[in-house]
């Protein structure tokens, strides 16, 4: 069995296993897992953006917030069904990512990071300025009774969407890294000028990744909105969302697909232990992330890989003996 088939099998079994929870698991379990999977999804997307494309954005909360408000408007005001609303949320984030990228890409490296933060603030302040329609700083609530037949139907639906998005982002990252775009990304990450001189359209590749990540994060934003019901600009556009993504990815291992998965598990364990400590949990997570970057920048997955030769998600390109033989004959 080759590496790709084995991976598809593993992912399918895992997906079916978690999907089955919808039939027998309790509400509490499903709520916890929902949060786990949407954090995994946004962390994986930030990993794609920063770890693979080198675009260190700290403004990803823009797409969470915009996705949440897009869902609110498309379901409550326009009357779309909930799943259509989630797709609209992704599209709205994707469309607004274009001007954001056009402006942001004018900034290099570190200043790009603050530039994305400014854009997130612009979206937050614009939403807050609309007090009649969107409820201003106090926000608005989604009337979930119109969208779901019962509270338990809501929890189950949100859970299913969360696992679809989490598995979707993992599969997307894996697919991209095995494609031409991924090859271009790796080249850009290693040396942008050299990649450009080899004919890779670095601007276009980065643009594609930036938009894709906005779409995915926007859809997660819609999911978070359905989960929290009350939509307040300050919490939806909070930089804490990006802090979660950064901490998860850095602790797990940046630039690998396994890293964010391990990072999300560690993040959850730490948070469960520290849930009563409020500010302390943020401080400890921050200290771990900073310490990790200094001592082991390759993250927990990198440390594991140094000791045992494993690779669950094969993104390396290996030379196959058969292919070499056929090349030799030809």
């Amino acid at each position: 069995m080759n590496r790709d088939r084995r991976l598809i099998l593993i992912l399918s079994i895992a997906f079916i296993f978690f999907a089955s929870f919808a039939f027998w698991a309790g509400r509490g379990t499903m709520n916890t897992l929902t949060e786990f999977f949407y954090l995994l999804a946004i962390a994986q997307l930030w990993n794609l953006l920063a770890g693979y494309a080198g675009l260190v954005s700290v403004g990803q909360q823009a797409w969470i917030g915009l996705g949440a408000y897009a869902l609110l408007v498309s379901t409550d005001d326009i009357g779309l069904p909930v799943y259509a609303g989630i797709v609209v949320a992704g599209l709205v984030a994707g469309v607004l990512a274009i001007p954001t990228a056009l402006l942001g890409f004018r900034l290099r490296g570190g200043y790009f990071a603050i530039g994305t933060w400014v854009m997130a603030e612009v979206f937050r302040l614009s939403v807050t300025a609309s007090s009649d329609w969107l409820g201003g700083g106090l926000g608005r609530s989604i009337i979930v009774n119109n969208l779901f037949s019962s509270p338990s139907a809501r929890i189950t639906s949100i859970y299913i969407v969360a696992i679809v998005l989490a598995f979707g982002t993992v599969a997307l990252t894996q697919y991209l890294m095995r494609s031409k775009v991924g090859l271009g990304l790796t080249a850009i990450r290693d040396n942008e000028d050299a990649a450009a001189s080899l004919g890779i359209n670095t601007y276009r590749v980065k643009m594609i990744i930036f938009i894709l990540c906005a779409v995915g994060t926007g859809m997660v934003g819609a999911l978070i909105a359905l989960n929290q019901i009350n939509i307040i600009p300050k919490s939806m556009f909070s930089v804490n969302w990006t802090a979660f993504m950064v901490f998860i990815v850095v602790i797990g291992g940046i630039g690998t697909i396994e890293g964010p998965i391990i990072g999300t598990i560690i993040f959850f364990l730490i948070r469960e232990y520290l849930s009563d400590f409020g500010e302390w949990s943020f401080i400890i997570l921050g200290v771990i992330a900073v310490g990790m970057m200094l001592i082991a920048p390759q993250g927990v997955w990198g440390l594991i890989k140094e000791r045992v030769d494993v690779e669950i998600f094969p993104v390396r390109r290996l030379i196959s003996a058969e292919r070499l033989k056929s090349l030799g004959r030809g």
């Binding site: 260190v56 802090a243 943020f282 921050g286």
Partner: peptide, 18 residues
């Protein structure tokens, strides 16, 4: 680019919460 950005971002969250 990555290490200083991640570290100062982490410090930002730490200082705020402290």
């Amino acid at each position: 680019l990555m290490p200083p950005l991640v570290i100062t971002f982490g410090l930002s969250i730490i200082v705020q919460n402290v």
